[in-house]
Design a protein around this nucleic acid. Structure first.
Lengths: 201, 201, 201, 201
DNA sequence: GATGAATGAGCATTCATTCAT
DNA sequence: AATGAATGAATGCTCATTCAT
């Protein structure tokens, strides 16, 4: 399921020790830089922090999106993995809400990611597919469960919701829970018109 | 001292004829350029189209946001003005929905505006205030009416909603009404838990 | 006939004093650099020597070939102008030979020019036309006169000869008159088979 | 007669089998790459095609010119060998002309070779000697025969001619026989002033 | 006031060569 | 011997902003 950093689909190919060191340094550096300056931070900033030549970065991550995907892979996996866990622990609606907040948390710390996704720059072309592939099934399951439980309508499109929250979830000043309120509102929208009425016992 | 285009609050000081001509040309040019290439299009593109020197632009619009605000002023005013009109023509909930879609339409055609607002670049610092000042009261009224009519809850924060839709409203491919669906969902969220139950008679 | 450096065909537009200074500095610097390092020397080398920003160079000479043409314009003009002069002073064959040597002298000091002409790089696309336009008519006249005098054949193609000598005329070590010998040989080739026999009185 | 590819003068030392395989692969790959992209094609292109590490190339061919010479050795030998053959089949002048065209054909397919020879880059220093050593005697013989037959003058310098045609023979667009015409012209130059007059019986 | 020339830091990217593995 | 990862200087080019004219 996992392989060399730049060839997400091929057969695993063990990296030489020095290469592995470089890749690790780059991922760590990029993670920091992305957090501080956004995903479109200058390449140099990353290589400098990783103490690595520019060519090394391009060797392992020929496309900018390759680096982004690699940096976020762990986080994406982690976030996606939370879906089933929540589904097992909470009742469907609660699980859904919690996961959306979790997902928003993931997005919010990725400054510039949303912009990059819509920039039209071909260097980012592969990213939407990457995210869709990893997140859509998870959300689809959560929506299904909630719908089957009668808690929400059954016509919600998971990709629609992911895009919406992906755009909504902007980094905020401390103490501002705008994103959370908006998620709550969206979920209420899903509940509205579901089989069971909202209020009355 | 004057309120040349960049100082909206001061005492009016009529521009010299040539200055006025420059400002007009810049506004027209910027409007076109923003529409074609987004609000972060290169400055030269604008000055070239306006047939004006770069210095002239900086004289009248020292900050990028000054130009953006000036360019959008008419559209902002127009969009804001639609609020009362809709309120007079439709029942509260319908008016609210329609205006939010109108507002989304405004935002969607401003490529890069949302990104600019969150870029952290001080050149855009004054924009959020500008939009808040013009749009918030309008939406507040619409929400109030709808709430008083019992169509939606009464605790909705207009600025929250404006920000949400401002982020949500991304330019889409033809035929994709993602934004409209999401607005509808948000409004349903507002309706959920309002005095009257959604479905049953 | 002559205008702004980058717009060889338009109406003359007097340059501002500072612009003229920059252009002059650039031309002087480029001339030196081309002589030392060839026409594909790094841009930076030229701007540094001219004490001018990189943008200034690109403003006046958007294409590399624009700079080359401008740098060589004087020399091209001078070389082309020598044709009629020689034609007036010497008998046709002598004039022809002398001009070809003069032309070879022009080419020989332009290191890399010939290579640039054949590099396929679009940045040099306009150069062949530039040279053809300036040199071909001059050589055509010289060939015509010599042919009419019966000194050479009448089927020589001027552009063919220009290309040949353009390639032939490579910078040589001091004291090596390879180029001159080859020109002489080519001219002998032209004489061969002309109306009058070579040797016998 | 032959030794390690890079040390033409030392005592023969048979290569290990794997080393020989590498060298062969490199020569084959380089031949293809030179034909497609010229002799100054990126090194990586060659090593990639040879499926060999970069270090391996540098081990066997420390200088770029070593590789070029090795790659062209067969072709050079073949071209040189044609001289005597032609001399045996045709009368001297015809043989001379045909061989010059053959030589031009060799040069013309080596994109960038002529430029490399004059680049001043020390990596190419040894090439002129290599070519001189192989081609000069062949041409000297052809010139001698033609001169002794009275078809051309006797003062032609073979190295001069080789250089001239080496420069002249530039890759051309299809259907353009510029090079052939120029060779013909040069040969006519050689004929001019020879013992026998060109035309009159 | 207007102009637009000049600036020059900044960026992505390539590639010959070295050297740890 | 072979590998190929790493290096990092070098290069062309852009563009916001300033300031001489």
């Amino acid at each position: 399921m996992d392989d060399g950093p730049s060839s997400p689909g091929r057969h695993r190919q063990p990296l030489r020790a020095d290469a592995q060191r470089s890749v690790d340094a780059l991922l760590a550096a990029a993670a920091q830089v992305f957090a501080e300056s956004g995903v479109d931070a200058p390449v140099r900033q990353i290589t400098a922090r990783a103490d690595v030549g520019a060519g090394t970065l391009y060797r392992h991550f020929p496309q900018r999106s390759d680096l982004i995907a690699a940096v976020f892979r762990r986080e994406v996996d982690a976030c996606a993995a939370v879906g089933p866990t929540l589904a097992a622990q909470y009742e469907p609606l609660e699980a859904l809400t919690r996961w959306l907040e979790r997902f928003a948390g993931f997005v919010a710390t990725k400054r510039g990611l949303s912009a990059a996704l819509h920039s039209g720059d071909p260097a980012y072309d592969s990213l939407p597919g990457y995210f869709q592939q990893h997140f859509e099934p998870v959300l689809a399951d959560l929506l299904d469960s909630a719908a089957r439980a009668g808690a929400i309508r059954s016509d919600a499109d998971p990709w629609d919701l992911l895009r919406a929250i992906g755009n909504l979830a902007v980094p905020l000043e401390d103490g501002d829970d705008h994103t959370q309120r908006m998620i709550s509102l969206l979920v209420d929208g899903l509940r509205y018109g579901a089989g069971s009425a909202p209020r009355q016992a």
